[in-house]
C-alpha cells in the first residue's frame, strides 16, 4: 500500500508511518471489540479518526523541523506509541495482541453477509483503488500544487502568500489517514492486531545515537550512544519498562533545542 504518495510530494520523509498504521489497526480493533454487533464501517471510522488525530498531533510538532529531524521526530513518536501499546496490557493486550471477530460486509441496501475470502479480496481492492484515485486527485488539486511548490522552493512559496506550515500539517494528516486505512484493512483481514507492526527500535537506535551526539562529528555518535545508554539505565530504574517515554521526550526536546547535538553544543559553548 503506497502510503507515501503525499510524503513524496512535499519532500518530507517519515519514519513514523508504523504509528499511523498501528493506530488505524488498534482503532479498528477497538470498534470491533466494544461495539456489538461488530460493524465494518464503524471500524473504518474509529481507525481513520484515531489515525487523523494522532497525525495532526505528530504533524504539529514535526513540521517545525526539516528533513532528518522531521524523520527522527516521527520515529520517536513511533517509539513512544510502541511502548504504550506494549505495556498497557489491559487495553491493548500487550505483547499478545488482540483477537476479535470479523465484521460482516454491510453495504446499505444490500443484505449483510459474512466475508468470504473472495468478497474480502474485492472489498480491500475496492477501498485501495478508491483511495488511490482520491489521493491522485488531491495531488493534482490546487492544494497538491502548493505541496509541490513547497518541495521546489519553500521560501518562495511563503513569499507568494502561502502559510507553508498549515499545508504541511494537512499533508501529514492525509498520509497518516492513508496509513491508518491500511491498518484498518489489515486488522479486518487478519482478525488480529499485535505491537510487532509498530516496531522500529533497532534501526532507530542508531539514528538516535547520531542525532543525540551530533551529526558530522564522527565521535558524536559514540557520545550519543553513551548518553542514550546512561539515560536508559538511569531512567529504567524508576520507570521500569516505560523508560522509553521520558527518553523520547528528552530526545524530542534535544532535537528542538540543540539540533547540533551534544558535541556540537559543547563545542559552541567552549568557543564562547
Amino acid at each position: 500500500m503506497s502510503s507515501d504518495i503525499l510524503i513524496g510530494y512535499t519532500g518530507m520523509v517519515s519514519f513514523g508511518h508504523s504509528v499511523f498504521f498501528g493506530i488505524g489497526m488498534y482503532g479498528a480493533a477497538a470498534a470491533l471489540l466494544t461495539v456489538r454487533p461488530p460493524n465494518l464501517w464503524l471500524a473504518l471510522l474509529y481507525g481513520l479518526v484515531a489515525a487523523a488525530l494522532v497525525a495532526v498531533f505528530v504533524a504539529y510538532f514535526s513540521t517545525r523541523l526539516r528533513d532528518i529531524y522531521f524523520a527522527i521526530t516521527t520515529l520517536v513518536f513511533s517509539q513512544i506509541f510502541y511502548v504504550i501499546i506494549f505495556t498497557w496490557t489491559e487495553v491493548t493486550g500487550g505483547e499478545n495482541g488482540l483477537t476479535f471477530r470479523q465484521p460482516p460486509l454491510a453495504i446499505p441496501g444490500v443484505p449483510s453477509a459474512a466475508f468470504t475470502p473472495v468478497t474480502l479480496h474485492w472489498f480491500v481492492l475496492g477501498v485501495v483503488t478508491l483511495s488511490y484515485l482520491l489521493l491522485r486527485r488531491v495531488t493534482q488539486s490546487p492544494f497538491g500544487m502548493v505541496l509541490q511548490s513547497i518541495r521546489e522552493n519553500e521560501p518562495r512559496t511563503r513569499a507568494i502568500g502561502y502559510h507553508v506550515e498549515r499545508y504541511k500539517i494537512v499533508a501529514v494528516m492525509l498520509s497518516g489517514l492513508v496509513a491508518g486505512l491500511a491498518g484498518v484493512l489489515y486488522a479486518i483481514q487478519n482478525k488480529f492486531v499485535a505491537p510487532d507492526f509498530v516496531f522500529f527500535v533497532v534501526s532507530g537506535e542508531v539514528v538516535i545515537f547520531n542525532v543525540m551526539g551530533g551529526m558530522g562529528t564522527l565521535v558524536g555518535p559514540v557520545a550519543g550512544a553513551a548518553f542514550f545508554l546512561l539515560l536508559r539505565e538511569g531512567l529504567s530504574r524508576f520507570w521500569t519498562e516505560y523508560y522509553l517515554i521520558p527518553v523520547g521526550i528528552i530526545f524530542t526536546l534535544m532535537v528542538i533545542w540543540i539540533p547540533q547535538g551534544l558535541l556540537g553544543f559543547a563545542k559552541r559553548r567552549l568557543n564562547q
Partner: peptide, 17 residues
C-alpha cells in the same frame, strides 16, 4: 499560476488545478 492561486481556491483538494 501558483502565485495567482495563493489568492483564489488555494485550499481546494478535489478539483483539478
Amino acid at each position: 499560476r501558483i502565485a495567482v492561486q495563493s489568492r483564489h481556491h488555494a485550499w481546494n483538494l478535489l478539483r483539478h488545478h
